[in-house]
Computed example of a mutant assay.
Amino acid sequence: MVIGVLGAVEPLLHALRASESERARGDAALALYHLSLIPSNRTRLVKAGAVGILLSMVRSGDSVSRILLVLCNVAACPDGKGAMLEGNAVGILVGKLREGGDEAARENCVAVLLTLCQGNLRFRGLASEVGAEEVLKEVEESGNARVKEKVGKILEAIRGGGESEFGGNVEAREWNRMMEASGLSRTQFQGGQNGGFACSSQF
């Protein structure tokens, strides 16, 4: 995506963090989501310090569902996963699950944790340190079928089970489910409106 090469990441992160307009922050989050779909832009986001900014916003509860969609993409690249693990992403996400909150945000938290646990032995230790297994069991009991499936895979990784598959068509299905849970269809992500959040025209 050319706009990523042209230096859009930093201004969008600034708008996401500093804008007083909820709609502007929503636009910035959607634009960053689109940029993060391109693997090379995920590295740009990491180099621009996006991980710390995004995790801080998750902790504060600002635009959580949409921020989590960006983080899930960033976690899919090695640099992003490493930066998130260094930035206490596991603790922050488990803490957010412990707080409760709306169903979409909880499901997206679980989805990010699922991405982080793929092929990463360090995740198991970090999850143990923050008491993730107990929290995830509670989420599994109260969650819908999609959440139960994702949590089951994470618990398997924490307990030392085999790696879960997360490629190709499975990944596409996960994204569709996450967008539906956030109240955003693929069409709305590409240029429509949802709940007062208008996707910027250039995206």
Rank of each mutant, 00 (worst) to 15 (best):
E86W: 04
L13I: 05
L6H: 09
V90C: 02
A83L: 05
A18Y: 10
R159K: 15
G195W: 05
A172I: 13
A89F: 03
V151N: 06
S40C: 05
V147M: 15
G95L: 06
A145K: 10
L45G: 02
G91S: 01
W175C: 05
E138T: 12
S19R: 03
G26R: 04
K137I: 15
L45P: 05
N169I: 12
V2D: 15
L30W: 11
S128H: 07
E86K: 13
N144W: 00
G162N: 12
A157I: 15
G49K: 00
H14Y: 07
E149W: 03
I38W: 05
I38K: 11
M1L: 03
E180V: 08
G7R: 11
A8G: 11
G125V: 05
E141R: 11
E180L: 11
S182L: 04
N73F: 06
E107H: 14
V135D: 09
K150P: 04
M57R: 15
G167L: 02
V170L: 15
T187F: 10
N120V: 08
A29R: 02
A8L: 15
K137W: 13
D62L: 12
I92G: 03
L16V: 01
Q118W: 07
D79K: 15
N176M: 10
G168F: 06
L45N: 00
G168H: 09
R98C: 04
I38E: 14
V2M: 14
K148H: 09
F197K: 13
I53P: 01
Q118C: 06
R106P: 09
S56R: 12
R59P: 06
G4E: 07
M179G: 01
A18D: 15
Q193L: 14
K148D: 04
G100Q: 03
A48H: 03
V70W: 06
F203E: 13
K153N: 08
E20W: 09
G195F: 08
D62Q: 11
E171T: 09
G100S: 04
E86C: 08
E129V: 13
E138R: 15
K47D: 09
A24M: 14
R25A: 08
G191H: 05
N73M: 06
V170D: 13
C77T: 09
L16P: 01
E103D: 14
N194R: 10
G87W: 08
N88P: 00
G168C: 01
S182C: 14
E141N: 06
V5Y: 13
A127K: 08
H14I: 08
S56N: 13
G161R: 08
A127V: 12
S128F: 01
G162D: 13
D102E: 13
N41G: 00
L37A: 14
G143E: 00
V51K: 01
L113R: 05
G26W: 01
M1Y: 08
E138D: 14
G195I: 05
S21T: 05
N176A: 12
L121R: 14
G131M: 05
N194H: 10
A31Y: 13
